[in-house]
C-alpha cells in the first residue's frame, strides 16, 4: 500500500491514466487471489460465517457487496479532498449506510422474493469490515476510477469465497446445490440413498452432515481454503 501512494504522487504531474491499463487490471485481479479480503486479509469473516448456508442467498449477497463496495469507494474517493479528516469515519459510515438502504429499498420494490430471502443480511453489509477497510486503505488516497475498480475487485474476491463456501456447505450439509436436490434420503433427490436402486447400493452409507449447516462449519471450511491457497501460492507464506 505504501508504494502505491508514492507512485500516485509521482504520476500526479498530469499523466493521463489509461482506462484499463496494467495497474487497473491488477486492481481487479489482485483481491481474487494474492490479496483476497477473506482468505488473506481475513476480513468480513462474520458475514461469511452467517450467510453461507445456501448458494442462492450468498450469490445475491455477493452482488450486493460488489455494488456497495464499488460505489462507496467511488463516492469517498470523490469526497476525499473536501472531507474533514476529523469526521472521515462518520462520513464513510453515512455513505455505506446510505448505499445499503438503497439496495434494500430497490430489492424490496423490484425483487421481493430475494428481499425476503436475504432479510437481515442486507443490513449486515453496513458492518462488513471489507467495505470500510477499502475506504480507509484505498479510496482515501486514490482517484475515483481506480477506487471504483478496487471496490469491484474486493467485492468479487469476497463474493467468490462466499459462493465457494456456500456450495461446499450446501452440498455436504443438505445434499442440494442452489436448491437442486443432489443426494438425500427421499426419491426426489438425484441420488436416493434409501429406496432400492443404484443410489442405495453405492451410496447407502452416505448421510448429509448436519454439522456443515451450522456456522462453525464455515470457519473450518475457510480455514482449509486458506491452507490450500497458501500451499499453492507460496508468495503468501510469511518466511520470518
Amino acid at each position: 500500500m505504501a508504494d502505491t501512494a508514492v507512485q500516485e504522487k509521482n504520476t500526479a504531474v498530469k499523466v493521463s491514466e489509461p482506462l484499463f491499463g496494467k495497474k487497473e487490471r491488477t486492481l481487479i485481479t489482485d483481491p481474487l487471489n494474492d490479496n483476497n479480503p477473506v482468505t488473506v486479509q481475513v476480513l468480513g469473516i462474520c458475514s461469511a460465517l452467517a450467510v453461507t448456508t445456501l448458494v442462492v442467498p450468498s450469490f445475491v449477497m455477493a452482488i450486493a457487496v460488489v455494488f456497495v463496495c464499488a460505489f462507496a469507494n467511488l463516492t469517498i474517493s470523490l469526497l476525499r479532498n473536501s472531507m474533514p479528516k476529523q469526521v472521515r469515519m462518520i462520513v464513510q459510515l453515512v455513505v455505506i449506510a446510505f448505499l445499503v438502504t438503497v439496495v434494500e429499498l430497490v430489492l424490496k420494490a423490484f425483487s421481493f422474493t430475494v428481499y425476503k430471502q436475504l432479510s437481515v443480511f442486507i443490513g449486515l453489509i453496513i458492518t462488513n469490515c471489507i467495505v470500510m477497510g477499502r475506504l480507509e486503505a484505498f479510496a482515501m488516497a486514490n482517484k475515483p476510477w481506480r477506487s471504483f475498480l478496487d471496490g469491484i475487485g474486493n467485492g468479487l474476491g469476497y463474493g467468490g469465497i462466499l459462493i465457494i463456501v456456500a456450495a461446499i456447505r450446501e452440498v455436504f450439509g443438505k445434499g442440494t446445490f442452489a436448491g437442486f436436490k443432489l443426494i438425500g434420503p427421499t426419491p426426489d433427490y438425484l441420488i436416493d440413498t434409501v429406496s432400492a436402486g443404484w443410489g442405495s447400493t453405492f451410496f447407502g452409507w452416505y448421510a448429509n452432515n448436519g454439522l456443515m449447516v451450522l456456522p462453525a462449519a464455515a470457519l473450518f471450511v475457510i480455514g482449509v481454503m486458506i491452507w490450500i491457497q497458501r500451499s499453492w501460492n507460496t508468495k503468501l507464506v510469511d518466511v520470518s
Binding site: 452467517a50 448456508t53 445456501l54 442467498p57 432479510s119 456447505r169 450439509g173 443438505k174
Partner: peptide, 10 residues
Amino acid sequence: FDHAGETPGL
C-alpha cells in the same frame, strides 16, 4: 410458514 429473520438453512 414465513419468518421475519430466521437464519437461512436453519
